[in-house]
Design a protein around this nucleic acid. Sequence first.
DNA 1: ACCAACTTGAAACAGGGGTTCCAAGATAAC
DNA 2: GTTATCTTGGAACCCCTGTTTCAAGTTGGT
Lengths: 201, 201
Amino acid sequence: MPDVKHFDPDAALETALLLFWQQGVASTGIQDVVAATGLNRSSLYATFGGKQELYLAALRRYLEHRSQPMFRRLAEDERGLPAIEEFFGGLIRARCSGAYARWGCMVSNAHAGTENGDAEVARILDRHHRGLRDALHAALVTAQARGQLTDGADPAAAADVLALVAYGVNLRSRAGASARSLKRSVTTALQSIGAPAPAAA
Amino acid sequence: MPDVKHFDPDAALETALLLFWQQGVASTGIQDVVAATGLNRSSLYATFGGKQELYLAALRRYLEHRSQPMFRRLAEDERGLPAIEEFFGGLIRARCSGAYARWGCMVSNAHAGTENGDAEVARILDRHHRGLRDALHAALVTAQARGQLTDGADPAAAADVLALVAYGVNLRSRAGASARSLKRSVTTALQSIGAPAPAAA
DNA sequence: ACCAACTTGAAACAGGGGTTCCAAGATAAC
DNA sequence: GTTATCTTGGAACCCCTGTTTCAAGTTGGT
């Protein structure tokens, strides 16, 4: 039987993910990955293939490990509008504070680069967008069923708008937008969708 | 008297701008600029300095020649909501069709890259954001004065939301979002801000 | 015609990009 | 212990990066 890997591929991929997320694929060299993981070039190439395949694996990992769990939680939350509020609250918190502050969203970032020229990358961006929109849609349908929306509101259209707002939050957070101003914007957007300020008491 | 330039610096800068806009600064080499402009390296460096300064000049040019005229037109338009509709209509048209289709917005793209690590770039991004928000704000104030907004609407908060939506449009257009779906989202967002669907004619 | 000032072309520079190759090392079954 | 099979380290590969250098060319005024 052959030798076995002397490292944990999953941990290495996570390390590469962080680099690609923060700096983008174009500004991240294989050398950076080698230095950050402590791995050797040979091991990297033997495990993941070239740079593009490594980036694709990282992007898929981001989608599955970071985005989709949030989408799922939102979609399955039965509270309606409060669920959406919480979703955006968590988003803004993650984008403006903590270990990944000012990193934006790896998928949003990929939109703006040359990455999306790759067909597989484009497919991942689309899957992310569908996941986000569908989760918002589900939560809005719930909200509508609970009578939380203004009369005649269209959950599908509103989901599209909120998805765009989320991309805006991701983008602006990278430029240093304050959590407070982002929160205020999201609150405003939700208020315009929700029922007119709950009648007194 | 010395020799005079054998080329038009402004035209060269515009050519460089297009490259940076489409591909991003990280994926655009000086070689690309040399090839696209037909200039020599020496002329480039003598005129603009290094790559970073060339990019800064291009980004400033984009802001002044492309973004700000749109902002000004929006801010000075006296029609209110229809002005905002037209603004977004033009934005979506420019992002999804024509010579620059799927290029997104050069400033939005800069948000997602390593560019914003440069302090001067960050300042330009902020100027862009203020310009966009202020223009939307002005148009919304006009709209409010004309009675086009729902009672109790906050033009400043609404401007922030619409600015985020604009970034979302820019981003998603790069991934191939259809003009129709973007238009639908914007229309929905504006409807939620505007007076409830005009009561039966 | 001359000259100072500037531009231009082409080559060269040092460094880094992604990738490949191969000898040396490590593993687990026989 | 031997062997087949895989992993690892490190050097090397070639090409492209941004930048600099300098001789040759070009200009407009004297």
